[in-house]
């Protein structure tokens, strides 16, 4: 599917191919949309990490997927991100959190992405509607 773009008063929206290059395209587009809001380096970094993890999850792990969309809007309580895909139903937020560790040998290599997303967001939810997986994340801007 070719990428399409929209932004303006209604926020930011990209429909992107399901491949790794879409992560960078989404990041650059979102950064351009958020530029006028002057959110600061720390907030922008958190937003970029959350975007990276959520889109990377779809691109690397979703099955039977050929549509990916990324929407964002900057509101009073934060930047609202919505990542949607039409792959097989999958709730990445339902996975068990990695076990806390105190040594290199104990540390789990998996699950770090969702852990980051959970800790960097003000709110996070998953829903399956009309054959679409949709994750909504809010990153605080204050």
């Amino acid at each position: 599917m070719p990428s399409t773009a929209a932004s303006g008063a209604d926020g930011f929206l990209r429909n992107l191919p399901v491949d790794l290059a879409s992560i960078e395209e989404a990041r650059q587009g979102l950064a351009a949309y958020l530029l006028p809001f002057q959110l600061g380096e720390r907030v922008m970094n958190r937003i970029e990490v959350v975007l990276e993890e959520l889109v990377s999850n779809v691109v690397r792990h979703a099955s039977a997927v050929d549509e990916l969309s990324i929407a964002a809007e900057c509101l009073d309580d934060g930047v609202h991100l919505t990542i949607a895909d039409n792959g097989t139903a999958f709730d990445p937020l339902g996975a068990a959190a990695p076990t806390p560790f105190s040594t290199l040998e104990e540390a789990e290599l998996g699950g770090l992405g969702i852990l980051l997303v959970k800790r960097l967001t003000r709110s996070l939810d998953y829903e399956r509607i009309g054959g679409v997986n949709r994750i909504r994340a809010v990153v605080a801007t204050q």
Binding site: V49, E53, S56, G113
Partner: peptide, 9 residues
């Protein structure tokens, strides 16, 4: 300039 979970891993 940026790190996410795969970099941590």
């Amino acid at each position: 300039t940026f790190i996410a979970s795969l970099g941590i891993r």
